[in-house]
Design a protein around this nucleic acid. Structure first.
Lengths: 132, 132
DNA sequence: TAACGTTTGTTATAATATAACATTTTGAAG
DNA sequence: CTTCAAAATGTTATATTATAACAAACGTTA
């Protein structure tokens, strides 16, 4: 809550739109939505997005080039994200599974590489689309 | 081996370049590389890439918009991919870890969604960059 | 050969993202 | 309160990534 105060004008406007959407938004669709509020250029949107990602307020769904609000207070500043994506209805949901995140946080391979961050995207059929 | 025979001319050319590269290649850098071989348009490259992905010969590294040859005979036709990405030197390696892939293949969340596919990207520091 | 799916070739354009530069706002330190 | 630096803004231009739409050729296999 205190942190929201530190957001700038553009950042607030754009976070607000992303939070109110019930689906990931594309940068240019955000741009279209905020033009009435005086944000005219792509770069203004991309800059706000970049900052919001750094703050962990939003995530980028990489395989969709879309941006979604973080529903998980435990994302640890955008370091660890997992999504489920329905290939039929395109619905994207942030997965919040303690076991999964613990498993991945502790994962290390043979090479000895240090992992600071990950992004996981599952694709499949959601329960609604499964039925039909 | 038998399968490689069924690849078309463009598909072979493009797979060959991706396999010989020791890093993920961007579509337009592939395009640049094959122009001497008569492939002139982006669409020719993208079409071949799409097919090669379907066949599991290559993968797309989503967060990089780049394409890399599959080093894993057990990717099951591109259904399950995991990469490690060094944020310093940008090196991308396909992770081949039985336990990890088994864990993710069997993962299911509360929603009951069926997962047919996933893509996981770890970001961090590789051993070489760690030292310096 | 006829019919079909796949691949190719081509032009044009859509969609996504960043470079470069000038200016303004903000917040903390003196 | 002023000054300074960091952050944010505004703007134009351009780079990068990807697909639409259409016509033609190829390769099976009936």
């Amino acid at each position: 809550m205190a942190q929201i105060q530190t957001l700038s004008k553009n950042q607030k406007i754009i976070l607000d739109i992303i939070e109110k959407a019930n689906e990931p938004l594309k940068a240019y669709s955000i741009l279209f939505n905020v033009q009435k509020k005086g944000i005219k250029a792509p770069l203004q949107v991309y800059r706000a997005l970049e900052k919001l990602i750094k703050l962990g307020k939003i995530h980028k769904v990489e395989s969709r080039n879309a941006f979604v609000a973080c529903k998980n207070s435990n994302c640890e500043i955008s370091k660890a994200t997992a999504f489920s994506i329905c290939e039929t209805c395109k619905k994207v949901t942030e997965i919040s599974d303690q076991k999964l995140s613990k498993y991945l946080k502790n994962f290390h391979d043979k090479t000895g590489m240090i992992y600071k961050k990950y992004n996981l995207e599952f694709y499949g059929l959601c329960t609604t689309c499964k039925r039909s």
